[in-house]
Design a protein around this nucleic acid. Structure first.
Length: 418
RNA sequence: GGAGAGGUGGCUGAGUGGUCGAAAGCGGCACCCUGCUAAGGUGUUACACGGGCAACUGUGUCGAGGGUUCGAAUCCCUCUCUCUCCGCCA
């Protein structure tokens, strides 16, 4: 949630919102806020009168005096209160609805642009970089480890079944990523995969992106990412400053309805309704969040280095930035079948945007402040699997397992069948 | 799924219509006293929103939302969460 006062003090911020694609009417927001406040003053004043009369009635009644006149007066005031309260509530509801629908303000160093073409590549780390390779669906068939037909049979489109060594490889990747996260100081969590509306509002998926979520019940949704349960772990809490930074990690499946992505990546495992991911989440002191984003991105990038997968680091432009994010750095891994880099991790600094929504504060001996939150994938496991299949495939042999995973697996090659 | 109990401030826990934002204790903080690793004394100690340069001040909050009433932590309704017992179950 953005800070209205900050927006008021700095009109330039409104332009940045526009650069992010927000169509919010900021002036309307201000006037709505003003009229809400005016009403609140009036309302409080009326309630104050009412309270005083009630107190008076109490005293009069105790002394056995006549209270009819004051009761009438009080009833009149109550009518005024009811009328005004209704208007006030409407204004308040509208205001909070609008505020929840306004995206975060991009950082100053975020490139301006309307789509991914304006993103800036900051670095590349190249190991081997094959091109025109087989894609993972073909390789999956050759090694008999990936089955989309069975997934379609039992569930439908955009699901996958992994078999044998490929399934084990995915499990090993998860284990590897969690171990690395722990080495980097993140505490592992096991969290619910179903969350309530409040949690999704807290991290910013709701109210605007309801159609992207899988709803399982009134007020209950499958998580689109572990960011949601992990970040909401601290909802409505006040932390001690000495607790910072809070660093959490979890492996979870992620569920996305991918509404509005018809025709995009329809083939293969790139865009699925269900995929595995290891997520990193941090709560840090506001002054530390820039550094924290770098560290977080490094934590994710190191995984790709250890897996010896080629990747590049990209700063997302304003138009490509997620709703809640002030700055996002994507890691994109090389896919030989597509001859391009594809997103495999997204590391974001949310500043105080989510923290305000989830009402988390930090106190020290002097005062209270709102911490900054960050998160990033480390990594998207499904896409990592795709990258390994495609990059490590050798014709006539099969898929070679990255050596860093050897301690998790009792094989180093997934052979072709026949 | 069935039956019951209950949600009060950081914690324990009083409080069944007005003087209750709420006793008391614990804990926290500040100061004082005390020459000994402790004890005692005094004061202070919720949050949100609004108004005001500020001192300060108004409103709201006793799980949530409605209702009754001039007035609700207290009475009524709905919801929700927690706990106990039974059933079922990985």
């Amino acid at each position: 949630m953005i800070d209205l006062n900050k927006l008021k003090d700095n009109p330039k911020l409104a332009e940045k919102l526009t650069a992010k694609g927000s169509t919010a009417d900021i002036d309307h927001l201000f006037s709505l806020n003003d009229s809400k406040n005016t009403m609140q003053v009036e309302l409080d004043d009326l309630k104050n009168k009412k309270n005083e009369i009630s107190k008076l009635i109490g005293e009069l009644a105790k002394n056995g005096e006549n209270i009819d006149e004051d009761k009438n007066k009080s009833n009149e005031i109550n009518e005024s209160i009811d009328a005004l309260q209704e208007k006030f509530n409407l204004a308040k509801t509208e205001l909070s609805g609008l505020l929840l629908s306004i995206p975060n303000i991009p950082d100053d160093d975020v490139p301006i642009g309307s789509n991914e073409e304006a993103n800036i590549v900051v670095s590349e780390s190249i190991y081997t970089q094959k091109s025109d390779g087989l894609d993972h669906t073909q390789i999956g068939e050759l090694i008999d480890g990936v089955d989309f037909n069975k997934a379609t049979l039992i569930s439908g489109a955009r699901f996958v079944v992994l078999k044998g060594k490929v399934a084990k490889l995915q499990r090993a990747l998860i284990q590897f990523m969690l171990d690395e996260a722990e080495n980097n100081g993140y505490q592992e969590q096991y969290v619910p995969y179903i969350v309530n509306t409040e949690s999704l509002i807290g991290t910013g998926q709701l109210p605007k992106f309801e159609e992207d979520q899988f709803k399982v019940d009134d007020n209950k949704y499958l998580i689109p990412t572990a960011e949601v349960p992990l970040t909401n772990l601290l909802r409505d809490t006040t932390l001690n400053e000495s607790d910072l930074p809070v660093k959490l990690t979890a492996h979870t499946p992620c569920f996305r309805s991918e509404a509005g992505n018809y025709g995009k990546d329809t083939k293969g495992m790139i865009r699925q309704h269900q995929f595995e991911k290891v997520e990193l989440v941090k709560f840090v002191h506001p002054e530390e969040s820039d550094k924290a984003l770098e560290d977080l991105t490094d934590n994710a990038a190191q995984l790709l280095d250890k897996l010896e997968l080629s990747y590049r680091k990209v700063v997302l432009c304003t138009g490509d930035l997620g709703f809640s994010s002030a700055k996002t750095i994507d890691l994109e891994v090389w896919l030989p079948s597509q001859n391009c880099f594809r997103e495999i991790s997204s590391c974001s600094n949310f500043r105080d945007f989510q923290a305000r929504r989830i009402n988390v504060k930090v106190k020290n001996s002097k005062n209270k402040y709102i911490p900054h939150t960050l998160n990033g994938s480390a990594l998207a496991v499904g896409r990592t699997l795709v990258a390994i299949l495609e990059n490590n495939y050798v014709e006539g042999e099969g898929v070679h397992i990255p050596s860093v995973l050897s301690k998790y697996l009792d094989f180093s090659l997934i052979e072709e069948k026949n």
